[in-house]
Amino acid sequence: MIKLTTPISEETARSLKVGDEVLLSGTIVTARDAAHKLMVEEKPDFPRPYMKDGVIYHCGPVVKKHEDGSYSFVAAGPTTSTREEPYQAAVCEEYSVRAVIGKGGMGPKTLEGLQKVGAVYLHAVGGAGTLIAKRCTKVETVFKLEEFGTPEAFWVIQVEDFPCVVTMDSHGNSLHKEIAAKSDEIAKELMGLK
C-alpha cells in the first residue's frame, strides 16, 4: 500500500505503476462533464492553485449544507470517466494535474497525455458512495455551484486515506486496455466468430 499526499511531484507520479494500491490524502478537486468542457474551452484561473501538482476527482457528490453555511459530503463515489476522454489530456497539461481519480478507465488519448505530463489514473470503487464520503473529511470551498448544480460543481475537498488502485500509469500501461483485449477474444469465441 502506497501513501500519497498532495501536492504530488512529477517524479512521484512517474514512479507509480499499474496495480499499485494507493491511499491518498490531502486536497483534491471534483470535476466532471461541465467542468472539463469549461477548462478546455475557457481555461479559467480559479482551479489552478488546487490543481497544480494536484488531483482531479470525477465525482458528483450528494452534499449536505449545514446551518452555518458549511458543507459536508454524504455520498461521494466516482463517476464514469470515459466521458472526459475528449478533454482529459488537455486539462492535465494545462493545469499540471498529477492524478485523475475515476472509474471505468479512460482511452488512448488520456493514456498518451498521462505519459507526456507525468500523471496517473487512479481507480476508485464505483458505487461506494457512503464509504468514500467518510474519507472526505472537509469541504474547503466550492466553485460554479449555482451555475452547474451540485453534481457538476468544482468541490475543493480534503481527503484522508482515500483508497484507489493505479490502473493507468505514465509508462503507457493500462489495465483497462489489457482486460478489454482479453475479453474481446473470449467474446469472439463465445459468439462463434473465431
Partner: peptide
C-alpha cells in the same frame, strides 16, 4: 469487500449507497 462494507455503512447511516441516486 469494499462493496459489501459500503452497503452495510449506507444501511446503518441511512445515506445513499451510491452518490448517483
Amino acid at each position: 469487500g469494499t462493496i459489501l462494507e459500503n452497503v452495510k455503512l449506507a444501511r446503518e447511516a441511512s445515506t445513499p449507497v451510491c452518490q448517483d441516486t
